[in-house]
Write a protein that binds this DNA or RNA. Structure first.
Ligand SMILES: [Zn+2]
Ligand SMILES: [Zn+2]
Ligand SMILES: [Zn+2]
Ligand SMILES: [Zn+2]
Lengths: 144, 144
DNA sequence: GAGCCAGTTGTTATTATGTAACGGCAATAT
DNA sequence: ATATTGCCGTTACATAATAACAACTGGCTC
């Protein structure tokens, strides 16, 4: 496990306990595994494999928790997960830039995009609850 | 099968043969089944069940074809498909408004949203290939 | 401490979703 | 007619996710 991962885990632990949430072993291990993929997405079964001796159910439960806490995001179009340790105003309104070559994911929080969509859909009288905005392509590095 | 479905199938047949594509029995049946769900999404296995006597592989192959021809769209966040018989400039740049109650899907083609996202992501030097924009919530009817 | 409760975990089985592979068949071309 | 190509039927498999239930843990009350 990378040193940076340990640091991050420790920091998360502090934040969660402050919130009264339990950062159990299983949850820590899954979060660590996710972080070790280093900014690329990981599928649930990738994590199962990376951890060894763990059942899928365990991983899915931990992922559900992490997503609920804003520590990970689910990428619907990949059936995968990306860790997130930033302090966003609202994770639920993120946009993801997904490089289909190196698998790195960048998270945008463009209020502008958000507001714009809200404005456009208001015409239809549609009441938005959640948005899935996943933009695929090539990151700047992978275009070379 | 509804009368409207038959009409639609006939119209599609004409368009496809004009394009030199083959609208085989399997493809017609799957498209018809999809249309019969009447503007709501259908999962691949829903269609398998609705058709009876058909194997999943058959349905998936037909769906792949229909999606490629712009006659259906895949909704990533639902693992489902929606039929589409409109003549859009480009189906690949659609946005979907998905009612989580009645399951109806409305398709937007807002160039504005499109351009706006392109503009925002250009800053990162990201080269977009495809976009998944799926907006969940309640349609105007279901808010009552 | 003993009892209690809510949340968490372990375990097993099952469901849901999607593909690989291969042989046969059908339309089209030469 | 023969070759080529695309399409289909079938089987088996791979991947993704959940159900159900018992056991355990940590914090709480008495
Ligand atoms: Zn985030
Ligand atoms: Zn890349
Ligand atoms: Zn469309
Ligand atoms: Zn509705």
């Amino acid at each position: 496990m990378q040193a940076k991962t340990k640091e991050t885990i420790a920091a998360i632990e502090e934040k969660l306990t402050a919130k009264g949430e339990r950062f159990t072993d299983a949850r820590q291990s899954v979060m660590a595994a996710l972080l070790e993929f280093d900014a690329t997405t990981a599928k649930a079964y990738d994590i199962v494999e990376a951890m060894g001796n763990v059942k899928p159910m365990t991983v899915y439960r931990a992922l559900d928790f992490l997503v609920a806490q804003g520590l990970a995001h689910r990428i619907e179009s990949l059936n995968a997960y990306a860790p997130c340790v930033e302090n966003h105003c609202a994770h639920k309104d993120s946009q993801y830039l997904i490089c289909d070559k190196c698998e790195k994911v960048e998270e945008l929080h463009s209020h502008a995009i958000d507001d714009f969509i809200a404005e456009q859909t208001a015409k239809d009288g549609f009441k938005i609850s959640t948005k899935v905005i996943e933009i695929h392509g090539l990151c700047s590095s992978c275009q070379l």
